Simulated assay, not measured.
Amino acid sequence: MNKFHGTGVALVTPFNADGTVDYIGLKNLINYQIDGKVEYLVSLGTTGEASTLSKEEKKKIWEFTAEVNNGRLPLIAGIGGNDTAEVSKSIKTFEINGYDAILSASPYYNKPTQEGIYQHYKAISESSAMPVFLYNVPGRTASNVSPETTCRLASDFKNIIGTKEASGNFDQFNQIMRDKPADFLLISGDDPVALPMISLGAVGVISVIGNALPKQLSDMIRLALKGDFAAAQPLHLSLIEFTRLMFNEGNPAGAKAALKYLDICSDHVRLPLVSVSDALRKAIIAETNKIIS
């Protein structure tokens, strides 16, 4: 599973001013990531505003992303939801050409028990012809996938190969690393803690800030994975303020503001999200210049 070691980027979905998908911007973004030497891409995760896209739009974006990527990097498709039957159906009918794995967020809003979460992912595992990554993000789902449930799923289903952990809970990370199967991948779901998570044994990050700074982030992650924390730490520290600004008024509005400044794509988002304030935009531009200069 070395193809999923390093920096994965959860791609934003560029939009035109009229709200339609900006495929020129998406092509620019994909090529920008590849030029920045990231290890793999995630299409239509949370950062891709998947919750506001229709089934038809998702299908076209997945196809377009695979076409532009053209096998240059591994691709992961984000397919999740809070209706297990619907998620399973979507995975069964997913056209896998060009894709290497599925990333599926734990169900939101329903607040299932740990047994409910286990049964949800059991159904996903049984529906998927590709490897599956769990995605634990309690700040969005209002429920946590416990270390016990994560490791139980990892042990019971061989096609569940890793987890994107965005709980921010280092006690949880420690338990997963201690109890997981040897080949199960722990991946940071939060940019600010990717470096310390790698020190515990995580194999990389699925990033938001990598949309705008793929080279800077992936350079840091590669150094950390080599165990050269003395060289990685200054790069990590140089990204702290940029990362804070990215999330100051929500994701992916911050990342899109930086991408607009870098002339990769526009900064339009779909309601209920809105673009960043003028004050935050100025701060993002100033910090971007500081890093890339």
Rank of each mutant, 00 (worst) to 15 (best):
I240Q: 15
A17Q: 12
G189L: 02
G78S: 00
E165C: 02
C265S: 01
K226V: 09
S88K: 13
A231Q: 15
A17E: 15
T150W: 13
A257W: 12
N144G: 09
G45E: 00
V42I: 13
A255H: 12
A10W: 08
I79A: 01
H5W: 00
S146Q: 02
I187L: 09
A194I: 01
L44V: 07
T13D: 07
P131E: 05
M1S: 13
N70E: 07
G227Y: 07
K122S: 14
L280E: 07
G80D: 02
I161S: 03
S88C: 14
I221T: 11
A129P: 14
K282F: 01
G189A: 07
S51N: 11
S238E: 08
D228C: 03
G168E: 11
D171M: 14
V12G: 05
L273R: 00
L239I: 04
A286P: 11
I240Y: 15
E56N: 13
D18N: 15
Y109M: 09
E241P: 01
M130W: 12
L73S: 00
E57R: 02
Y109A: 09
L195C: 10
S218A: 10
L53N: 07
K89P: 00
I176A: 06
G250M: 06
L223Y: 09
P14H: 03
H120Q: 06
F170Q: 06
L213T: 02
A212R: 11
D35F: 12
N174G: 15
D179R: 04
Q233A: 14
N289S: 06
L217E: 15
A50P: 06
L185S: 01
T163G: 10
S127T: 10
L235R: 13
L217T: 12
I61S: 11
A283N: 03
I264W: 05
D190F: 04
K92T: 02
Q33L: 04
G25S: 05
E57S: 03
P234R: 10
S125C: 13
G19V: 09
M177P: 11
N169T: 04
S266N: 05
T93F: 11
S104I: 10
D18G: 02
